[in-house]
Amino acid sequence: MSAAPAPPPALATRDLVAGYERDLPIVRGIDFSVRQGEFVVILGPNGAGKSTLVKAIAGLVPIHSGSTHLAGEDITLSPVQEKVRHGLAFVPQTENIFATLSIRENLQLAADILPRGRQAAQIDEVYSLFPDLASRRGARAGNLSGGQRQMLAVARALVVKPSVLILDEPSAGLSPKIVGEVFARLKALNGAGITIVLVEQNVKAALAVADRAVILVEGKLRHEGPAATLSSDPIVGELYLGARARQGENGR
């Protein structure tokens, strides 16, 4: 092709194989890419490798082969603590805040990688996005409610102004009302220009906010498409149900 080179995707994986044990890959060769400013949701039945995929990208699960790229830069081999310096922020599903630290300390910890002069301004900016946190900044994070913890985890990820924000099932364990609030917040952040990748079990809520969805089944990318059309596409149900039938009683 002779067209002008397209800008590199915000986030991409090439034939990624990953898993905790060498002989037991859970992500089994995934090519996946996210455009700048896109909001992508990763769907799939239990055990499909959704979490493992994003953890491998974040550097928490060993990558056996293949590569990961952030804005065209190969970040496969950069250690977990370096990825956030490249602009990739990750919010794990559970234990995603430091319960023994205060709200302020949680945010300050994230800001510690920034130049000293920018730290206070960044934290203040996050406080302005999350006034609930600002009003309780001295409180121990362990004393927060489930929804507030999730907000703190997102807030902490935003302190470094990431280019890509990955969230692993932020709705887990939250009431539908709070889920709605969290997702609305994510949508707003996306509108402000942050690329978002969301792993979700909550298909309906996720498709309502995302631009595009990809569906993993058994460690491979099986289907993808615009979120708006997928919500009515029978293939989604089929992929879920098919996998569930193969899994027998092991599905949720």
């Binding site: 977990v80 603590q81 794990p92």
Partner: peptide
């Protein structure tokens, strides 16, 4: 693990 994610 979380400390690593945060950049420590």
């Amino acid at each position: 693990a979380l400390a690593g994610v945060v950049g420590v």
